[in-house]
């Protein structure tokens, strides 16, 4: 069985280490916050200007002056810090963020990523994605292995306008976990019940199956 969005988030959560500062993008990455392991102290950054993002507010706690990068109402936690957006991207560019998780439309076997623009469709903008992928040292891309048409999103080269070049080292899809190196997707972990043949059929880029392939625990 392919992983559900929640299972993808749970697998990412296992990458969290004590003391990590983490930036989670919109979509599946946001769900990771629901699965932070007990005893692991991580601080979530929201690039509009908050370190130490708390849970969504209760109805009574809603405050228009406190939102996250997805413009959702949010709370702070003891120890939270608020700052302006230039300061916030200073944290990102100077590589203080230990883990960045973001979604994508396409990733190439050279580590290029496209996630902001589809020619011919309305362009909404890149937000902070170009800054994040250009500077972050530890990025995991989460996405479905294929698009709604069933076409692979793991490609020899991106077809959509790029967000960043040669910047992605790891991708987790509903079918598997990949390391990108030496111009190929190295399948290191596979979703339970998914066959290597299915992964091969749904990977358009160069695929290398790791000799130590593991099944993702869910």
């Amino acid at each position: 069985m392919a992983l559900t969005k929640e299972q993808i988030a749970q697998r990412i959560a296992k990458e969290l280490k004590n003391g990590y500062y983490v930036n989670l993008g919109i979509g599946i990455p946001t769900l990771v916050a629901n699965y932070i392991p007990k005893g692991i102290d991580v601080v979530l950054q929201s690039e509009n200007g908050l370190l130490g993002m708390g849970p969504f507010p209760t109805e009574e706690e809603v405050d228009a002056d406190f939102i996250n990068a997805g413009k959702q109402t949010i709370t702070t936690l003891p120890g939270s810090v608020i700052f302006d957006s230039a300061y916030s991207f200073g944290m990102i560019r100077s590589q203080r963020i230990d883990l960045t998780v973001l979604g994508a439309m396409e990733v190439s076997q050279n580590g290029d990523i496209a996630n902001w623009k589809i020619p011919g469709k309305l362009i909404k903008g890149m937000g902070g994605a170009m800054d994040l992928v250009a500077s972050a040292k530890n990025i995991i891309v989460t996405m479905m292995q294929t698009n709604p048409k069933g076409e692979s999103k793991l490609l020899p080269e991106c077809t959509l306008p790029l967000t960043g070049k040669k910047c992605i080292q790891r991708v987790l899809t509903d079918l598997g976990f990949y390391e990108i190196k030496d111009g190929a997707f190295h399948l290191t972990e596979i979703a339970p019940g998914v066959t290597v043949d299915e992964v091969k059929a749904k990977t358009a880029g160069k695929l290398v199956v790791s000799a130590t392939l593991k099944t993702i625990e869910v």
Partner: peptide
Amino acid sequence: PQGTLATRCMMAGYGIPAFFTPAGVG
């Protein structure tokens, strides 16, 4: 890019005409 937008504002306020960023390379 959002960080570039923020920093282009900041540089205007700091009296610095330009800066270098990796965002958007390639």
